[in-house]
């Protein structure tokens, strides 16, 4: 059960070694930097050191309680990430698959709009635009 922020890429195989705590089901989600505009080359992510780790840890703990997880892990990258690179990773482990899927979905919804990260889209010409939060992200939280 852990939450990490880092600039380096992560290795899924290494992350899942010894992960699970005796679970019957492990679900992982990996977010990849994608270009929605046709001119973006990278994302630049800034975060709030200290609060980020604490918030991710709080959401992980809450997910564990709510979905009876045997293990969970959150890894979120920051800094400059090119299109196609990994941006974040969530793994959840539970006795049954439904709880593991739901917990991963729950964590993603919370991380999207409550973990203190801010994204900037970097275009090929060097232009940088802050990404605005979407109303749909806020709506997604109401499901829980």
């Amino acid at each position: 059960m852990s939450a990490r922020v880092q600039t380096a890429p992560f290795d899924l195989t290494a992350e899942l070694r010894d992960f699970g705590g005796g679970a019957g089901a492990v679900v992982t989600f990996t977010g990849i930097v994608r270009d929605d505009t046709g001119r973006m080359v990278a994302l630049e992510l800034e975060h709030y050191p200290g609060m980020t780790e604490a918030a991710m840890s709080d959401y992980g703990t809450e997910a564990a309680r709510r979905f009876d997880l045997t293990d969970w892990r959150i890894v979120h990258r920051y800094g400059r990430l090119a299109v196609g690179e990994q941006i974040m990773f969530v793994a959840t482990a539970a006795r049954h698959r439904r709880a593991a899927f739901d917990a991963a979905d729950y964590l993603m919804d919370w991380l999207k709009s409550r973990a203190p990260f801010w994204k900037r889209e970097i275009a090929a010409d060097g232009r940088a635009d802050w990404v605005e939060a979407k109303a749909g992200d806020e709506d997604a939280l109401r499901r829980w």
Binding site: M51, R114, P116
Partner: peptide, 29 residues
């Protein structure tokens, strides 16, 4: 806004606060 690294609303008291942060809506994930 966050007061001492906890998200708060704008009417939150500052009693005993040490660190206050201001930022736009978050865009993680």
């Amino acid at each position: 806004c966050a007061v001492d690294q906890k998200l708060v609303d704008l009417d939150a008291p500052l009693t005993g606060a040490r660190e206050v942060a201001f930022f736009p809506p978050m865009t993680g994930g």
